[in-house]
Design a protein around this nucleic acid. Structure first.
Length: 560
RNA sequence: UGCCCGAUAGUAUAAAGGUAGUACAACGGUUUUUGGUACCGUCUGUCUAGGUUCGAAUCCUGGUCGGGCAACCA
């Protein structure tokens, strides 16, 4: 029973710190830049940061890293908050790096006073030239040795808006020959006459990431500042700044961002997909964004379980999309209501069922749970819609459904035998004629017949129609990023297939009401997959999104 | 030519010097009124060469391979 879940390496660090009495409680933060929507990779970071403070004693702040006014917008702030809350996490404080602009400015002044920062007038090209390379040391800027008083004056005038964008920067005075390029007098502040989403036009100078992130961590007394691998070289600067400023010693730890195959997650690329209309928006159900996954029908717990399972480590990784599918199926199997829908219909006529007769048959909502979560009534009649590929004119040996002479069960109804079929002039099958066995009724079957296949169906006169959107992976390549040429060349042309007039059983006409009653309402269209009602639905046109198909071992078998 | 990070089954992740395990995937079977679910089983792994040790995935050294590092982005 004492099955102890092993800790990831960051949890281990935290546990050791706590054991050593380094902290009474831990503080983490989730620090998104509000310039895009959160995606599945962020979910991993969110689960880590919030999970850490849930598992151990502490709390997590939500801090927007909003130091670049030209790319950041309030709509992103709102979507980020919504997504984190939806995932099931609560932040202690909602904070913004921009809240600290005054303090940060005073830190910069302090650095100047200590002789550790100077105002440079080099343009970006000249600066790059003097920076050196990985193998060659850099050279000092001619402006490096101004007096403290001059630097103070210049920096103040930068703040006051006396200089145009790009004309001056505040740089840390460290070492132009340092092996770590980031330590070669990094830029601390740049001039941007731009309106900030929160501070408006108050500032014309904005701190760089390196002069905002660690300082914000320190201000908030963040104990464990967790970020991705590419920030490893920044750690040295992070620590240097904290030491020189003599502020709270937060510590930075890095892990490898999680990558999922058949997706892209770079903000630039996601933005491109949106702007160039390859998808309908940030929340298009094919997008790997949290909002896309939500609209697709993923549940918060399925995403949390996924993040928990894939773990946290430092090595490069590419996680299989099938793992995500596993967790959403696992979840939806337990909770979704079973319903019947025919996506590619063909008509079946039960020749020995009286014309005009109808009966209502009960169908359980969910066989997986005790009590079956109730049941609904399904109308049955002489004419039914069935799935076109449930019939084969010349079925192979292991085909369990219908073909000439074959028997199959209609789910929740009767066993039927296929006697005949009708073809049109083009040779397409248009009708299937069957006889049913009245004593094989579901629940009271005394026929003694044994059949292997069970099929879904919808009664023709009682059928409603709906639009069904069948989603598949957005890309045909496991790593569209790494392919030659443009990643957009690898968009899956069948990532969305719309079925305009699918036939759905009558109860599904209540889907809007059912969603109101339970916002988590999902459906399993029997044998077809898991679906959810899309926000595009209107009373006249219901729209269902396919979240994921059911596992289909027949599809594999039939490929052989 | 430099510096940093990493390397365990197809994928991801455990094993803090002592039986290489788990999940997904794949494959086979049982059950089944969903070719679903559930259950059972099978397959495949410590990058390499040395060293330390009674004993190495783990510690040390060299190599190989992969990733990162020269935005007034974060």
């Amino acid at each position: 029973m004492s099955e102890e879940k092993s800790l990831n390496f960051i949890e281990e660090i935290v546990e050791n710190d706590l054991k050593a009495g380094k902290y009474d409680q831990i503080v983490t933060r989730f620090p998104p830049e509000p310039n895009g929507f959160l995606h599945i990779g962020h979910a991993s970071s969110i689960c880590l940061n919030f999970g850490l403070t849930q598992k151990f004693n502490g709390y997590t702040n939500l801090r927007f890293d909003d130091t670049n006014p030209v790319t950041e917008e309030t709509i992103y702030v709102d979507s980020i908050k919504k997504d984190i809350a939806w995932l099931g996490f609560q932040w202690k404080n909602e904070l913004y790096a921009s809240d600290y602009f005054d303090l940060l400015y005073s830190y910069a002044v302090k650095l100047i006073e200590k002789g550790l920062a100077y105002v440079d007038e080099l343009g970006s090209e000249e600066m790059a030239k003097l920076k050196g390379t990985h193998t060659e040391p850099g050279k000092d800027s001619p402006f490096r040795n101004r007096s403290v008083a001059e630097n103070l004056d210049l920096f103040e005038r930068m703040k006051n808006g006396e200089f145009p964008d790009g004309s001056r920067t505040l740089r840390a005075k460290i070492d132009m020959t340092h092996v770590n390029m980031l330590m070669r007098d990094p830029i601390l502040y740049r001039i941007k006459h731009a309106k900030h989403h929160r501070t408006g036009n108050k500032w014309c100078v904005y701190p760089m990431y390196d002069f905002a992130h660690g300082q914000s961590d320190a201000i908030e007394h963040v104990t464990h500042s967790v970020c991705t691998l590419e920030f490893i070289p920044h750690r040295e600067l992070y620590n240097w700044l904290i030491a020189q400023l003599e502020i709270y010693p937060s510590h930075q730890y890095e892990f490898a961002r999680r990558n999922v195959n058949y997706t892209v997650t770079s903000k630039r690329k996601l933005l491109q997909l949106v702007n160039e209309k390859f998808v309908s928006g940030w929340d298009d159900p094919r997008m790997p964004t949290i909002s896309g996954l939500r609209r697709r029908g993923f549940t918060p717990s399925s995403i949390r379980n996924f993040c928990e399972r894939i773990g946290i480590a430092k090595r490069e990784n590419l996680i299989e999309y099938s793992l995500l599918e596993f967790f959403i199926r696992e979840d939806l199997n337990r909770t979704s209501w079973r319903r019947m829908a025919v996506l590619d219909p063909i008509k079946m006529i039960i020749t020995n069922y009286p014309e005009g007769q109808k009966e209502m048959l009960p169908g359980e909502n969910n066989p997986e749970v005790e009590g079956h979560d109730g049941e609904r009534q399904i109308p049955f009649s002489r004419e039914l819609w069935i799935e076109r590929d449930d019939f084969m004119e010349e079925p192979p040996k292991k085909f369990f459904r219908l073909g000439p002479g074959l028997m199959s069960r209609l789910k929740s109804a009767y066993i039927v035998r296929c006697d005949d079929f009708v073809k049109d002039a083009n040779g397409n099958v248009t009708e299937i004629h069957c006889t049913y066995f009245p004593d094989s009724k579901s629940g009271e079957d005394t026929s003694g017949l044994k059949v292997k296949g069970t099929m879904h169906w919808v009664s023709v006169p009682h059928a409603k129609t709906a639009e069904v959107r069948l989603y598949d992976r957005l890309f045909t390549s496991e790593e569209p990023d790494r392919e030659e040429g443009d990643f957009k060349d690898y968009i899956n042309p069948e990532s969305l297939v719309v079925v305009k007039n699918a036939f759905i059983e009558s109860d599904l006409a209540n889907a809007s009401k059912q969603l109101e009653e339970n916002p988590d309402r999902r459906y399993q269209f029997i044998r077809k997959g898991y679906f959810c009602l899309d926000a595009d639905s209107t009373p006249e046109n219901l729209v269902f999104n396919r979240t994921v198909t059911l596992k289909d071992t027949w599809a594999k078998e039939s490929q052989k």
